[in-house]
Design a protein around this nucleic acid. Structure first.
Lengths: 161, 161
DNA sequence: CAAAATCACGAAAGATTCTTGCGTGAAGCG
DNA sequence: CGCTTCACGCAAGAATCTTTCGTGATTTTG
C-alpha cells in the first residue's frame, strides 16, 4: 500500500493518540509514543505543516446544547454541470444548519450533515431553503436516532510500515 | 428556545473558539473571550465535566494518508426490532472501515461513514462484509468526490442568551 | 430592607509544560 | 573510509497551567 507521506510507526502512533485526545500535552504524548518531548513536538509540527493534521476541534454534545435534531439530507440536482455543482456547494456554506457537506456520486449529488434545535426548525429549513433552492430536484432526509459509532479518521488497529 | 444547560455568552464564545482550534492555549482563549485565565479554565473544565465538551480530536487529511476513498453507505435491514438494530450497531463497531455510524429513520435504518485506502478495499468491504451481513436488506453507497463544507457542531454566528 | 450567603472574577505564585539550542550517535552516500 | 545528513535526547529559559486567596456583585433569606 503506497503512502503519500513517509510516516513511520511513531508518526502513526502520534496520529492515533491525537485523534483520541487532541489536547494531550506533548510530554504525555511523547511518553505514550516512546520518545522524548522535543522530537515528539517536532514530529507534531511537521504533521501540522504538511497538512496531515488539518487542525484540532472540540467535540460538542448536541442534545446538551439544545440541538435535538441531527439529520442527513441527500440532494439531487436537475443539472450537474460543473458550474451548477459549484453554485450549490457555495450555497451550503451559507446555511448555518448545514454543518458539513460532501459532493457525492451515486443516486444523489450532495450529502448534507444538518443540526437544528428542533424538528420545526429543521423542517422549515428543508422546505423553505433547501427544497426551494434553484436547481434542486430531490431531497431525501434521514433523521438520526442515535450515534452508534464515533471514531476519528484512522482506525486504532492501524499499524503500517 | 430552552437550553438544557445554562450557558452565558462567554460559554458560547468558548465553545466556538475551541471548535475552531481545540489546541488553543488557555491564555489565548481567555483573551479571545474577554476574561482572565483562571475563570476561563474553570469554565472549560465545567464544560468538560458536564459533558457539553465531549472531547478533543485532531482532524486528519485522508488523501495525504493514502486513504483515497471516503463514502457513505445507507443500510436497510429486513427486520427493525430493537434486538436486530442493536446487533447491527454492534457489528459496525467491529468494522475498521466504518469511522462513524448513525441509526436513522426514513428510507434506511443506518448511515455509515466509511474510509478506505482505495476503491478495491471499499468494494470488498461492501460486498463481502456489509451486504453479506445477516439481516441486511439494501445497501446504497455514495462515494464522496470532495468535501464542500466542514464546520463543527455549533454555527459561528450562533449567539444565545 | 438589611444581613448573610453564594458566586464568579482576577491577581499572584508555584508547578508544570513548552520550546529552543546544542551535542551525540546512527544511517546513507560519494 | 570519511563526509554528510538526520533525528534523538539533555538541559535551560520562556511560557503556560493551575491553585489559592481576597474582593465585589448578585441573590437569597430573615
Amino acid at each position: 500500500m503506497p503512502l503519500k507521506a513517509d510516516l513511520d510507526a511513531i508518526d502513526w502512533k502520534i496520529l492515533r493518540e491525537l485523534q483520541q485526545d487532541g489536547r494531550m500535552t506533548n510530554v504525555e504524548l511523547s511518553g505514550r509514543v516512546g520518545i522524548s518531548a522535543p522530537p515528539c513536538l517536532r514530529r507534531v509540527r511537521r504533521l501540522e505543516e504538511t497538512g496531515i493534521i488539518r487542525g484540532y476541534r472540540a467535540l460538542l454534545n448536541a442534545p446538551a446544547l439544545g440541538l435535538d435534531v441531527v439529520a442527513f439530507c441527500l440532494i439531487g440536482l436537475h443539472h450537474q454541470a460543473d458550474a451548477e455543482l459549484k453554485t450549490f456547494a457555495e450555497r451550503t456554506r451559507g446555511w448555518p444548519i448545514v454543518r458539513d457537506a460532501w459532493m457525492v456520486s451515486g443516486e444523489s449529488d450532495f450529502l448534507l450533515h444538518c443540526v437544528a434545535s428542533d424538528l420545526g426548525a429543521f423542517q422549515t429549513f428543508v422546505i423553505e431553503e433547501l427544497a426551494s433552492a434553484p436547481n434542486v430536484d430531490t431531497v431525501r432526509t434521514a433523521l438520526t436516532i442515535r450515534r452508534v459509532k464515533d471514531e476519528g479518521l484512522v482506525a486504532f488497529s492501524e499499524v503500517r510500515i
